[in-house]
Design a protein around this nucleic acid. Structure first.
Lengths: 252, 252
DNA sequence: TTCGATTTGTGTATAAAATACACGGTTGCC
DNA sequence: GGCAACCGTGTATTTTATACACAAATCGAA
């Protein structure tokens, strides 16, 4: 995963700009919204920004932007992620397109929702460069526009996907303990899992490599650290029906 | 399920009309394409129409249309279905949005793909009123535009969904034998299933009501006819995470 | 009217997968 | 040195999936 330090603070598009872009044509405008998940303090988080349009002043919203006519849909989603976070090569999957007539106060704007999984190691970069804040997914409420619905749809999708594919590894640092992994699953699925059975199941997938390193500085017996084994994953993936793990997700 | 007999033959939109609608704005146009599945002669079928634009002359395409600025996205999908088939209240689920820059020769058109499940009893109505033809899903190839990809994406989605939900019942007449149901699953999943285990599993779901009627005119021991029990389904559905069965599908 | 072909309806034995559960070991901290 | 906290491991039980055989009903042909 490449990391870039030159994150551009993104100039917010004023509502008048959006209005002119939308209404000048009396046509439908298209935007992309990204639900960006991260994992910090053993909690699943989502990245939000404050709305600056009058109707929703001060409320939180997802990260999004209008599509450009000369970019592919997936490219637009990548662009938004890249502009906001400085990261590329992150996991991204299209989820659903929302198109109620009245979903946007500035006019007819249809939005394609994606979710994305970011490695926690890059959190600090993000929140400094833009006015972004991580929110515990359990506490997300009253988002602006229809973003609450979009968020919930994407969150459900993630919960479903993580049971079918080892996507969660995108959220963890390169080296992690099995407890880290279990915490991720538990906070994503909002449930408790049996520690021994979780181990058994994950090891049976045979996707983890023992780094021969241990946790350090923990006030208890330290756990082994593992790495995700991409090669094994790529081999197995062929026999699965699942989506791609490390780049843009397919359509299902 | 309501049935209407006044199916409107839909005037085809010429490419010049599409071009003017798209290019006059130098913006992005939005369309909806529907992958309409049916079940006939124990084969899963898909409804296609011939393309009339020059580049793809004579090739088959999905049923689609440009969105209107004053209709919801889901409404647009319903409208297309209704205009083409005269049926409403059919199963419909949004699948994916396709937005490559060059996917449409007339300009920038992004399309939202839905799939739909139609009851075979209404087939005749359909194909007479429009230039529509049912195609065995096994023989669909070389569709115009990117419709081959759209078709395959929607077909995969259906295959996945039918394993999670009893959606297939939308494709059968009101009364059907368990063999009909198994044939539907086998042709949808392109596989053979064990007859006894299939029965066991479906009866365990407890969604079928015995009509106390039997097949007639079959050259073998006749099977019982069943009906789908919507009430039981609605009760069970609440405890599932799945999508709605009998109307517009949710987002996942 | 009998026979053959075909398909229905049913139950059990086996294998695989998911779940429940306990104890000894290592570390930091007091 | 002892306590608190968590790691690492295996087995028994339940649930679910799979494999598989035979008697009965209908049609059509002889």
């Amino acid at each position: 995963m490449s990391e870039s330090t030159n994150i551009k603070p993104v100039a917010k598009k004023s509502i008048s700009v959006i209005q002119s872009e939308v209404q000048s044509t009396n046509k439908i405008a298209l935007s992309v919204d990204c639900v960006i998940f991260g994992f910090e303090d053993n909690k699943l988080k989502v990245l939000l920004i404050r709305s600056d349009i009058k109707k929703y002043k001060g409320m939180w919203t997802l990260l999004g932007d209008l599509m450009q006519p000369d970019e592919d849909l997936d490219q637009a989603a990548y662009r938004i992620l890249s502009e906001r976070t400085g990261l590329d090569n992150v996991f991204l999957e299209q989820v659903h397109t929302f198109g109620s007539v009245d979903r946007h106060p500035a006019g007819r704007v249809i939005t394609v929702a994606y979710y994305s999984l970011l490695n926690a190691q890059n959190h600090k970069l993000l929140t400094e460069a833009n006015e972004l804040h991580w929110h515990d997914v359990k506490e997300v409420s009253d988002l602006a526009f229809d973003h609450q619905e979009i968020f919930e749809t994407c969150y459900k999708r993630l919960q479903k996907r993580i049971l079918e594919n080892p996507l969660g590894l995108n959220l963890l640092p390169k080296k992690f303990s099995l407890r880290d992994l279990q915490n991720l699953y538990e906070s994503t699925l909002n449930t408790k899992l049996d520690r021994r059975n979780f181990r058994k199941k994950f090891f049976a997938m045979d996707l983890l490599t023992d780094t021969n390193e241990m946790e350090e500085g923990v006030p208890h017996r330290p756990g082994k650290l593992y790495q995700f084994n991409y090669k094994k994953y790529e081999k197995k993936k062929k026999s699965w029906t699942g989506i791609d793990f490390s780049s843009v997700g397919g359509s299902d």
